[in-house]
Simulated scan of single mutants.
Amino acid sequence: MVATETTVLTDRQVTVLQLREQGETQQEVADKLGTTGSNVSAVERAAETNVEKARRTLELVRTLRAPAQFTVSPGTSFDEVVDRVYAQGDDAGIRVAYCRPELYAHLYGLLAEVTDENRLISAVRIGLTEAGEVRVFNDLE
């Protein structure tokens, strides 16, 4: 049994995830746990939601801990975002760890869901680490 006291998952969620990762169907898990397939589905869905929240929390903290941070407004083009990353790095004395094409690709991968026709559709928070890594948090209101 995995200790869950220090995680965002319940014991039941861990058990369901473990059994599902081992290739068991929801009905097989339900039979083992003496419950219904729909209950297993709900537990699995709640576990995945908790995992996603934990991942997003880590993204936020990593961005907030970056020594150079800035917010980019909706409507900003990718060209402007890339320019701002380099400008912020220069201002903070941080060498960005990506050449321009790599930075475009990196940012596009991180921001694809908040981009439309090469422009941001929502505000994002960008952080630069001491090592020049670019962190993004895109749940700003």
Rank of each mutant, 00 (worst) to 15 (best):
R12Y: 12
T57R: 15
V16Q: 13
V136P: 03
V16N: 05
R12I: 06
E24I: 03
R45L: 10
P74G: 02
S122P: 00
M1A: 13
L60D: 02
F137V: 00
T71Y: 05
R56Y: 03
L33G: 14
T129F: 12
A92S: 15
E133H: 13
V134S: 13
K53T: 04
C99W: 15
D90V: 09
G93P: 06
L103N: 01
G127Y: 01
T36C: 05
R135F: 12
L9W: 06
A97L: 08
R55G: 00
T63H: 01
Q88Y: 06
G132C: 11
L120R: 01
V85Y: 02
R56Q: 13
A105L: 08
V29N: 12
Y98G: 11
P74Y: 00
G23N: 04
T25C: 07
Y86V: 03
T10A: 12
Y108F: 14
L64W: 12
R125K: 06
V8P: 03
D11T: 15
L103M: 02
L19W: 12
T71E: 13
L103W: 03
V72G: 11
T76C: 10
P67C: 09
A3W: 09
G109F: 02
S41W: 05
D139A: 03
S41D: 04
D139E: 07
T25M: 09
E44Q: 15
A30I: 07
I121T: 14
N118K: 13
Q27R: 04
A46D: 15
E52A: 14
V81R: 10
G75F: 04
A92N: 09
S77K: 04
L107T: 06
D11W: 11
P67D: 06
V124T: 09
E48T: 11
G109E: 06
Y108P: 05
S38F: 05
A105Q: 08
V51G: 03
V2W: 13
A68C: 07
V124H: 04
A42K: 13
G37Y: 02
D90W: 04
P101Q: 11
A66R: 03
T57P: 03
E24F: 15
T71D: 10
N138L: 01
T115K: 00
V81S: 14
T49L: 08
Y108H: 15
T6Q: 11
S73K: 10
G89K: 09
V136H: 02
M1G: 14
E130K: 05
V85K: 02
K32G: 05
V8D: 08
E117P: 06
V29A: 12
S41M: 02
S41E: 07
T71C: 07
D83I: 04
L103T: 00
N39R: 13
G127S: 01
D79G: 03
E28A: 13
V124G: 04
R56M: 09
N50T: 06
A46M: 11
L103V: 02
V72K: 14
R55C: 03
I126C: 02
R84M: 12
R45P: 03
V16I: 12
P101K: 13
E113S: 04
